[in-house]
């Protein structure tokens, strides 16, 4: 083939090249775009329906994380689904029972595509990691004036002690907007202390004290469950919890027999 012929040939292929959106790549791009948008919308709306209304700082972290991760994952999942769907539409051999008359192209791999895939997934992992670590580290910071509560699990109930007041209760009452630290332990087997809508949990291990902290930031009720199978009535091992205003908290302490002055001091209400 002479040079002119080659140029002609090239020109013809370029000219006859179909517009982007009618090539496989373009069509897959459209499917991908639609699915990604759906995925992102799911990421923004679904958590409102699938997660409980979170009542604390850690709960809000969980909520945000779920949204962010879903939004990040959606385009990746959408891409895989888009190629899958397109392959069924466009490349499917019609006529189930008879085998395709010829083979597909003998393509053993595609270096650039593989590199792009690896780079994109690595970048996504970096984003996940930075997000996760920064949230986790922020949660570790200890706050001044933390309210300490000793949590004890036993088969099959929870008890909550408020040190310094002598109060021992079956329900968990927390003041609003005050950091609280749970010191969790067990007297028999391993339990899991899980104040659900506070979005945090830690196991109660016999012979060990484990600590988690959170800051309740909404008034209301939540339930405290056991998240670690602990025998026969594990499923019935739950208590109720509530987040109240400091004044109500002080009143609750007084109702448990704490002298008013001490109750107010514990609830940090100036007289």
């Amino acid at each position: 083939m002479s040079f002119e012929e080659q140029v002609d040939e090239l020109e013809r292929t370029v000219m006859s090249e179909k517009p982007f959106f009618s090539r496989p790549g373009g069509k897959i791009f459209i499917i991908w775009l639609i699915l990604s948008v759906i995925g992102v919308l799911i990421g923004f709306y679904a958590p409102h329906h699938l997660l409980p209304a979170m009542m604390s700082s850690t709960g809000t972290d969980v909520f945000k994380t779920v949204v962010v991760f879903t939004v990040l994952a959606a385009p990746v999942a959408a891409f895989v689904y888009a190629v899958g769907i397109y392959s069924l539409i466009a490349w499917r051999h019609k006529g189930d029972q008879d085998e395709p008359p010829e083979d597909g192209p003998p393509m053993h791999g595609n270096g650039p595509m593989t590199v792009v895939w690896l780079v994109v997934s690595s970048l996504l992992v970096v984003v996940l990691l930075v997000w996760g670590l920064s949230v986790y580290m922020a949660q570790q910071v200890s706050h001044p004036n933390t309210l300490q509560i000793d949590v004890t699990g036993r088969q099959w109930l929870w008890t909550f002690k408020y040190p310094g007041t002598g109060v021992e209760s079956r329900t968990l009452v927390l003041p609003l907007d005050r950091a609280v630290e749970f010191n969790v332990t067990s007297v028999d087997v391993t339990h899991g202390f899980w104040p659900v809508a506070l979005g945090n949990q830690v196991d109660a291990n016999p012979g060990e004290v484990t600590v988690i902290q959170t800051t309740p930031d909404k008034l209301g009720k939540f339930s405290v469950r056991c998240s670690q199978l602990c025998g026969l009535y594990h499923a019935f091992m739950y208590s109720s919890g509530s987040v109240v205003t400091p004044t109500q908290f002080s009143q609750w302490l007084q109702a448990q027999g704490v002298p008013p002055a001490l109750a107010d001091r514990t609830a940090r209400i100036a007289r």
Partner: peptide, 30 residues
């Protein structure tokens, strides 16, 4: 958290391989 998230990179390659294998194939849906 780091090691766990890293493992999704090689796991992702498995997806790449499947969709790459389907790419322009003669898909026979038996």
């Amino acid at each position: 958290m780091l090691t766990t998230e890293l493992i999704s990179i090689p796991t992702g390659v498995i997806f790449l391989s499947i969709i790459g294998t389907l790419w322009k194939g003669r898909i026979w849906t038996r």
